[in-house]
């Protein structure tokens, strides 16, 4: 299969240099070639696995239980101001 590795990389929001693309592109095609063997396995009337033990995710009451930890949780951020995360300008 021919895969446009730069298109996939943009979906994943990873810049690839031309060098990286030249290496990763053929590897991705090789991996996809290998997983393509799945198409030969009969799965008619087989339900996909959603959970290894067929258990539904539990729900809990919608109540704040761990308080406001914004300051601690924002400590590892590269840039914050007034409790907000700072990123490059998005809207002109």
């Amino acid at each position: 299969m021919n895969i446009d590795v730069q298109k996939v990389a943009m979906l994943a929001r990873i810049r690839l240099t031309d060098e990286e693309a030249a290496e990763l592109g053929p590897q991705l095609e090789q991996i996809v070639g290998y997983i393509d063997q799945l198409s030969g396995i009969g799965t008619d009337n087989i339900a996909p696995t959603a959970h290894p033990h067929d258990i539904a995710m539990p729900l809990r009451a919608d109540i704040v239980s761990n308080g406001n930890r914004r300051e601690i949780l924002q400590q590892p951020a590269p840039a914050t101001e007034a409790g907000l995360y700072i990123v490059p300008k998005v809207i002109e």
Partner: peptide, 24 residues
Amino acid sequence: DMYTRTRDEGFGAEVKRRILTGSF
């Protein structure tokens, strides 16, 4: 540019291969 360059610089080759495989 921040997203794509940060992730290119931060992830090693095997992690990129897996993210690309999954994204595909």
